[in-house]
Each structure stands twice: as structure tokens, then as C-alpha cells.
């Protein structure tokens, strides 16, 4: 849970491998772009193929949303090693910003993206500044406390959040309202979101900030000794991560059109879930969090649709079992498992 254990858990092989490879060949953003475009195109193709299969299209849509959220989380949680479970707070800020601007001032959600990002980043910087003094489990549990405070706050600030009954947005389809009748449009929207988060994450990983974040994660004392401004690095990472999460909130608001504090700020359904998705996929890697989302989210929804009605809780029993077994058989996450397979395969060649 601390910087150290993250580094030593080995779940991060990818970025460090890249670093090692850097000795012979410097990896730049340009090197990453072909893979990036291939992944986005592949998903785009999947969206196209599924565009008339609404149930499965929706699974993919949700996977892309949570993929984007997990990739955003990964910037501070994976690269920076700061295990936040409070990202639901920034998600909620995005949703409430867009919802209120649209509902009360008629501002298009497309325009609301900017204030949502700024607000999420600002709140993230303000609350993180004190909390970043804490390390390891202290930091994680403090972010849990932040979620609790945020829920109480959202319940009480009825003018903005609608209190317990939630904030609702009328259904008025139109591109300018970001409300679509065509289901593939939402899939495309969330694919766009995912692409933005992936690209940001690629740029950061190959920038000074990315190397700083990883240095802080791997050994903050050594990082400090080599002149890296630790607090500034963490704050920057957190602010970018939160701003991206806020965008996800904007899109989510326009997708469900009703949000209420208990669901939006749910510790397990949002805050912990985002982190777990990144974790099972491959924390600290670029595509690991996406991989986690593409596996975990459809699995969750599929089990709920086809097993949820037989016995109360039946779907979650199966999901729980899969999570336990998954962690036992893929100790380094899915990305790690795939890498192992790839290595074994290339040795054979």
C-alpha cells in the first residue's frame, strides 16, 4: 500500500522495463502512438460491430467509462504509487458541475467539461495538499475518510446535489446536450474519453513528470535527495488525474441523467472499484487499467443480467469467487500474466 511496497510488488514491470530498455533506445511518445491507435481502432471496430446489440454494446460502454476512470486513477495511483480510494469525489464533482450548469444555466455539457476539470483539479489539490503528508496505509485510509466527508456534504448541499433524492436532468436528445438516442453514440463518447485519458497517460509517462512520479513511488527519500520536489510532483499528478476523472463524471451525468450521493460517492461501487480495476489489469502500466476494465466490468454486468435473478446475491457470489481466484492465478495482474505468456512464447521462437 505504500510507495515502497507498490514498487516492490512487481506489479509495475512494464514501465520499469521500458525504463531499462531506455538505455539502448529512448522511448518517446511517438513510439507509443502506433499501439495507441491500434487499441483505439480495435475498440472502435468492436463498437461498430456491436452497434445493434444494445445489451453488449452497453457492457462495452460501461467498460470504456470505467477504463477511462481507471487509466486516470493510474496516473497518481499507479505511476505515483498514491493509493487513493477517493476518486469518486472527483467523479462526483464532474457530474454535479455538468448537471447544474446544464440544468440551471443551459450550459452545454461540452462546455462544462472545462469548469469540471478545473474544479476537480482544484479540489484535488486543496484536499491532497494536507493528505499527501501521509504515506502508505495512512494515505489510503485518509482518502476513505474524504469520501465519507464528501457524502455528508453532498447530502446536505441540496441546492447543488438535490440531496438524497438526487439531481436529475430532463431527457432532451441532441448533440449539443450530449444526450443521444443512438446507443452507439454513448459508446463513441466513452471511447473518446478513454482515448483522451490514454493519451494523457502516455504523454505523462514519457515526460519529466512521469519519471518524477515513478521516482517518488519507487523511493521517495532517494527522489528527494536527487532534487525532485516531492510534494509538487504528487500534487501535479493528483490534479491531472482528478481533472480526467472529472471529465468522466460529466459524461456519466449525461448518460444516466440521475445521480444521487449514495451511488455516486459509493466507496465500493466507485472509489474502490476504480482502483481494483487498475490493480487486476496491471497497475502502473499504460494499458493494464483498460484491460482490467474490459474484463471486470462486462463480467460484473453479465453476471448480474444472467445470474442476478436466480438467487439473491448469486451473481456477486460468482464474481467474488472469480476475484479471489483471479488474484491467486494472476498475481501480477492480467498485464503481468500476459507478459509472462509472451515471454515464454518469444523464448520458444
Amino acid at each position: 500500500m505504500s510507495n515502497l511496497d507498490l514498487a516492490q510488488s512487481g506489479a509495475l514491470g512494464d514501465s520499469r522495463l521500458a525504463g531499462r530498455r531506455g538505455a539502448a533506445e529512448v522511448w518517446t511518445v511517438a513510439n507509443e502512438l502506433p499501439t495507441f491507435f491500434a487499441v483505439v481502432a480495435a475498440i472502435g471496430l468492436a463498437v461498430y460491430l456491436l452497434s445493434n446489440q444494445f445489451f453488449y454494446l452497453n457492457l462495452l460502454t460501461m467498460a470504456l467509462l470505467f477504463g477511462g476512470l481507471a487509466v486516470s486513477w493510474n496516473i497518481i495511483g499507479g505511476f505515483g504509487g498514491q493509493f487513493s480510494i477517493a476518486h469518486s469525489v472527483f467523479f462526483a464533482i464532474g457530474a454535479y458541475t455538468a448537471g447544474n450548469l446544464y440544468k440551471h444555466f443551459g450550459v452545454s455539457p461540452w462546455i462544462a467539461i472545462l469548469p469540471a476539470m478545473l474544479l476537480s483539479a482544484a479540489v484535488a489539490a486543496i484536499v491532497s495538499w494536507p493528505v499527501f503528508r501521509l504515506r502508505g496505509p495512512f494515505f489510503a485510509i485518509a482518502t476513505m475518510a474524504l469520501t465519507e466527508v464528501a457524502i455528508a456534504f453532498a447530502m446536505h448541499w441540496k441546492a447543488v446535489t438535490g440531496g438524497a433524492s438526487g439531481l436529475t436532468i430532463p431527457y432532451r436528445a441532441g448533440l449539443e446536450n450530449m444526450i443521444f438516442q443512438q446507443r452507439w453514440a454513448y459508446a463513441a463518447l466513452f471511447l473518446g474519453y478513454l482515448a483522451v485519458t490514454l493519451l494523457t497517460s502516455i504523454v505523462i509517462l514519457r515526460s519529466r513528470l512521469g519519471y518524477y512520479l515513478q521516482a517518488v513511488r519507487d523511493n521517495d527519500k532517494a527522489a528527494e535527495a536527487s532534487g525532485i520536489p516531492i510534494m509538487w510532483t504528487k500534487l501535479k499528478g493528483m490534479a491531472i488525474s482528478a481533472a480526467l476523472t472529472g471529465i468522466g463524471g460529466v459524461f456519466f451525468m449525461m448518460y444516466v441523467r440521475i445521480v444521487e450521493p449514495a451511488g455516486l460517492l459509493s466507496l465500493f461501487d466507485v472509489g474502490v472499484k476504480i482502483a481494483l480495476i487498475a490493480l487486476i489489469g496491471g497497475i502502473g502500466t499504460i494499458y493494464g487499467p483498460l484491460l482490467g476494465a474490459l474484463i471486470l466490468v462486462p463480467l460484473d454486468y453479465w453476471l448480474r443480467a444472467f445470474m442476478g435473478s436466480a438467487v439473491p446475491g448469486g451473481n456477486l457470489i460468482v464474481l467474488g469467487l472469480i476475484l479471489v481466484l483471479g488474484s491467486l492465478f494472476m498475481k501480477k495482474g492480467v498485464a503481468g500474466a500476459l507478459r509472462q505468456v509472451y515471454r515464454a512464447w518469444s523464448r520458444q521462437q
Binding site: 512487481g10 465500493f268 467474488g320
Partner: peptide, 17 residues
Amino acid sequence: NEPMMQVFASFGLLLLI
């Protein structure tokens, strides 16, 4: 040796139990 995966597994246990 994988404390983060222990977190993950414990969440699976939570759902299961």
C-alpha cells in the same frame, strides 16, 4: 509477496461471504 493483490482478494472475499 503481493500486498496489493491481497487487497484485491479480500474484496473478492467480501463479496463472496
